[in-house]
Design a binder for these strands. Sequence first.
DNA 1: AAATAGCATAAAAACGTTTTCAATACAATA
DNA 2: TATTGTATTGAAAACGTTTTTATGCTATTT
Lengths: 339, 339
Amino acid sequence: MGKITIRDVAREAGVSISTVSNALNDVDVLNPVTKSHVLKVAQRLNYVPNLNGKLLKTGKTNMLGFFTTSVSGPYFYKLVESMARECDRFGYGLNVFVTKDKHVVMSNILGRRVDGVIIYEELKIDEKDINAMKKDKIKAVFLDRVLQNETMGSVIFDSYEAGYEATKYLIGLGHKKIVYISGVDTMFDSVQRKEGYLAALNHYQLPTNEEYILQGYFEEEGTYNAVKSFLHLHPDKLPDAFLAGNDLSAIGCIQALKTHGYEVPLDISVMSFDDIDIAPYFTPPLTTVRNQIARQGILAIDHLVRMIQKKEQGVVQKLVGELIVRGSTHLKIDRNDHK
Amino acid sequence: MGKITIRDVAREAGVSISTVSNALNDVDVLNPVTKSHVLKVAQRLNYVPNLNGKLLKTGKTNMLGFFTTSVSGPYFYKLVESMARECDRFGYGLNVFVTKDKHVVMSNILGRRVDGVIIYEELKIDEKDINAMKKDKIKAVFLDRVLQNETMGSVIFDSYEAGYEATKYLIGLGHKKIVYISGVDTMFDSVQRKEGYLAALNHYQLPTNEEYILQGYFEEEGTYNAVKSFLHLHPDKLPDAFLAGNDLSAIGCIQALKTHGYEVPLDISVMSFDDIDIAPYFTPPLTTVRNQIARQGILAIDHLVRMIQKKEQGVVQKLVGELIVRGSTHLKIDRNDHK
DNA sequence: AAATAGCATAAAAACGTTTTCAATACAATA
DNA sequence: TATTGTATTGAAAACGTTTTTATGCTATTT
């Protein structure tokens, strides 16, 4: 005996399938005794509606899709956690697609696998696909990418401002030679922070320097290696401070400095972005620009749900960072007794 | 004009919908010229098949479901990342449901939202629901929970062994008073580790002590608070070492010890479980029992896919930990000049 | 020339629901 | 009594596919 369907319930209860459907979906048109009888039979048979049959008719999957190139690391787990919980709150499930294959992405989006989508910028969906989505009236919210029309919105961090403010703070501590550790040069946040960093240097009339921009790939190991090779190549150009693309990068940076015998923050200040969970527990505790990652996820889902259910227009929402001063930065000290 | 369907393609190409279906699905029964003509028309109309129509007929959603109470923290992001990538490799998408509502879980599982499911143990699916799944021949793999029958398998860590080995290692360093910081007492891994810890103490004829078992909830803050209050309540009962339920817990523990002026590992050793990404970058770098979290995810998906596609039986797979010695543990030192 | 086989395509059924609309029964009204 | 209205239920269409079966050819065989 296969899976039991609405038909089985109807037969067993001696009614039509439309009556069963009405009973299950609380359509108040039924005689109460019929309804309760049908429900009892459904219960007895352990009937569970096939969601696929249902959605084919209604056109609603009750699923939202998150399309991304990665879910690894503290940024993503905060994001996914907050989105998944918010979905659950609205009665949606979250579909996570981790892929770089645009065809997979588009066939799942246009194939109506989900009622709406959240798209991480690194996927770099192109103009043509954006138009296809627009034409099909796909509801979408982009993360870390500005895009707006009737059916699409964005939630971004003001990373330019964050980069500017962080740099300004370091300059305020007396630091002049500041190295920026970039993440990935194709990513919006990474370049925005760099732009802000450069603008701040400019504004305070400090020289910018190509050699003072490293590539750390937003993670510990990449940054560790980048900083080590920088220290090796330019032992004469020791900077006053490092501005790392995110907290993980700062952690790798600090570790590299330690192995070279430098003390953070007394010898060199390090600051970064995000304020991930372990930032206050690290030694030294990280000075960082806090990004409300969970908030980004929540805003994205809320916006998407409103676009779907209330036909709201897409908007761009910008989150501003908050400077969190902890122990990895310090006033510039001139040490003559330097080892 | 709404979404274009297979019917539109058929009309436009002047063929029947079955011909279109055959052309799109590479059924080699068609005249090559018909086929290429149909494909050209489909392309021109930007036709994308509705996956819901398809799956209703085929009964395959090409989705696997991950049902969990949380996706927060390093354990889960490793797990989700590895599962999602493995799914992508097999042409599946991953559906992540973060919920504690068993009804949501069961209606999505039994409602055939997905072709197979991965279930995190903390959900504690009960006997009745297990039977319902078994009856419906739902393919399932449980994480951190032992369960096996024709359609269900498990992937677990040997946490008893890990707890035993970790404790044995600490004892070998000369530590006698060892505090265990438990995670959550309803969770399999947490209690297994504790059992192993107790067994090791027993084996080496060291006393066990109820006061030496704290509750740290598997995260920094909970452990930080638990350790602080322990130190406050029992200043006389300072242990030689802490065995934390996971690395996050160790981080909170070390931080608490630092604020009380103790140095890790010279005054007190701390070790833990997992070996998360930042473990080697922490100060001190963490001695820990490595769990192959990504491997767990991969094994789970592979097993599930084989059960679905090759009708394989469910089995229990056990992953063993690996002791990683770093800087947070040290030989017991008797300091007479103790502050 | 009739029967058979093989190929390409079309028609129709099916998947499991929801929803629209028609049908029935019965009470209330004229 | 005939008519209308109301409450309840059932029949059938629809959602967009795949798949099974049927059909119409042409070519081959007898």
